[in-house]
Write a protein that binds this DNA or RNA. Structure first.
Lengths: 342, 342
DNA sequence: ATCATTTTCCAAAGCGCTTTGGCAATAGTT
DNA sequence: AACTATTGCCAAAGCGCTTTGGAAAATGAT
């Protein structure tokens, strides 16, 4: 079924059908209803390609997700983010186009996406320090919005980020207030912007209390359970082990907990743990009472909102790019407690 | 830049440019090279919408992922599957379109996807028992391939599945061979086809050894860490606790391990554990030596292959639908050992 | 009843590509 | 030299939609 046939069936012009379906005023209510009914009956939906050609808009957003080739690592956060974004898209009649690209090859991906006219804009995932993608997209004139920020890039652009610095600063202070003096950091790869900022927040808090920043209790790697486990073991083996650990993700935190419990220690008594919690649907932090004390910010919600930002920007390209800085909430669970007396 | 302008610049017809770029023979090598060079120089890529309109193919595959509204649960397996599929798509010049749909609303998603002509086919995720989607897609005439199978649907269709039944049957036998008599099952939701089949395999093996199938050591829920933990605790609290546990996912298994270690038990000594391992990139089962004994099958690889199946089917619609049954490999880790003497 | 508006509809052009049918020009055969 | 194939190219139609520029019909104002 297509416009032409539908119009013929009804004995009206294609124009009228098109207008009726797209809510234009210059069509009689009676005919509009007739047309709407027929469209529904024939299960008609306008051909997206044709519509796109005619209007010059793709009504689609591209997500280019970089994959670290080394570990073939797909960010586990990704599924939930996408789910959130998708809600926004379906509400606004947008499609979501996914492209998985090896880390570093994003340049070509963006420019062909643009040249092929297949999307109206893109979401930038996993911004790194001094990320070049933003400048590239600016020069391409392809609308975009960044999930996170890129330290090192000047000039305005649309982004949504969790305030990682303040979240980790606050978490660190929380531990300091509990009397902890040696606080370990188990971070993500620090060329990633979010991880860099988290470290800043952590170091800032320590500096504010005049506490020595000790690289021997700071680790950065891909945020796996194994990373959390290994790093925690190593740190607990030190002559001066940390009494608290700050950790960058729930998956990591599972490893941290394992290393702690393996020694017969109890979380929140012998070693305190705070993790960042992206509120992933398949990794909930306890049911009613949270297990981990956590800096929490829903990545699904971020997806929803960032998608909306981009859509707004596409609709209104002259407006200044919007930016959203979300404050993570600190939820107190059972994984933290006063520093043990030595 | 578009075809018309490019042709004008070069002083040839659009036809010639089109043929040159698409590798048709009826164009002189010299002019072809001239055209190719110009295209590269101007960063030209044919407009996908226009191309699609002209050819009648979208060169895109749709992924409709159902989301359980209850827990807003995105299958954690999804990211890796997508990453795999994406590799195939980019190799074949296909785009990937993602639609997240509330469980049960897939019907409409498929039919509008079809009506709008936006994809050439779809991948069906998370098939359930007696899944109606397959019949629907057949009636729509939209090519599809299923990740998994749907018990209850008769008639041929394209699918790729892990042999869940044999994997869990084998795993159960493995435990039985180690002398375990009480083997717990921590499964996914059993209206999901894969979970159903796993249970079949488990029960089959027990029956083959004449062992009583005890519902009190069988649990089914969404495969979260908490589910693994809770179920294991409950089962270990029984008067006759299981000496071994079979578990449906790595995430679950983390919870199982936690419950075991929490009691001071040692995995592989006091309680044996086998889990299914989808080889998720962010949840690797140990580095060199696997931690868990596991039935292992890479979901990323499944994505790669299923995508290829669908593309082949689209290219050759009259061929019989292909089916692939992958055998999971049983990798022995440190989480299993002989049944403890009572 | 006449003219000016407004309402309701339409024909046709155009979006950027592929593809059909055909026409020169060249090469190959006798 | 005359005829047939082959090669290399082109003009134009068509994919399914939107949208412009009217035009006919209905309505309102005088």
């Amino acid at each position: 079924m297509n416009l032409k046939k539908l119009a013929q069936n009804l004995g009206v012009s294609q124009t009228t059908v098109s207008r009726a379906l797209n809510g234009y005023p210059e069509v009689n209510e009676a005919t509009r209803n007739r047309i709407l009914a027929a469209a529904r009956q024939h299960n008609y939906a306008p051909n997206t390609r044709a519509k796109g050609l005619a209007t010059g808009r793709a009504h689609a957003i591209g997500h280019v997700i970089p994959v670290a080739t080394r570990h073939e690592m797909v960010n586990p956060v990704f599924g939930d983010f996408i789910a959130g974004a998708s809600e926004t898209y379906s509400r606004n009649g947008y499609d979501m186009l996914l492209t998985v690209v090896e880390n570093g090859n994003e340049q070509e991906a963006y420019s062909t996406l643009r040249a092929r006219g297949v999307v109206d804009g893109v979401i930038v995932h996993g911004p790194r320090m001094n990320d070049t993608r933003i400048a590239l997209l600016d020069s391409l004139g392809l609308p975009f919005a960044v999930h996170g920020r890129a330290t090192g890039h000047s000039g305005p652009y649309a982004w949504l980020d969790v305030n990682n610095r303040s979240a980790f600063r606050r978490a660190t202070h929380f531990l300091l207030d509990l009397g902890h003096q040696r606080i370990g950091l188990i971070n993500g790869l620090e060329h990633m912007d979010f991880a860099h900022r988290r470290r800043m927040g952590y170091e800032e808090a320590l500096a504010e209390r005049g506490i020595f920043i000790d690289p021997s209790i700071m680790r950065a790697d891909e945020m796996t359970e194994a990373h959390g486990y290994r790093s925690t073991r190593e740190m607990l083996d030190l002559v001066q082990p940390p009494t608290a650990i700050l950790c960058s993700s729930m998956i990591c935190a599972l490893g941290v907990r394992r290393a702690i419990e393996e020694r017969g220690y109890v979380m929140g008594r012998d070693v305190s743990v705070i993790t960042h919690d992206d509120a992933l649907s398949y990794l909930q932090n306890g049911d009613a009472i949270p297990i981990f004390t956590a800096t929490r910010s829903s990545v699904r919600d971020a997806g929803r909102r960032l998608a909306q930002m981009l859509i707004d920007q596409i609709a209104n390209p002259t407006a200044d790019p919007e930016t959203i800085l979300l404050e993570a909430e600190l939820t107190v669970g059972t994984s933290t407690g006063p520093a043990p007396r030595i």
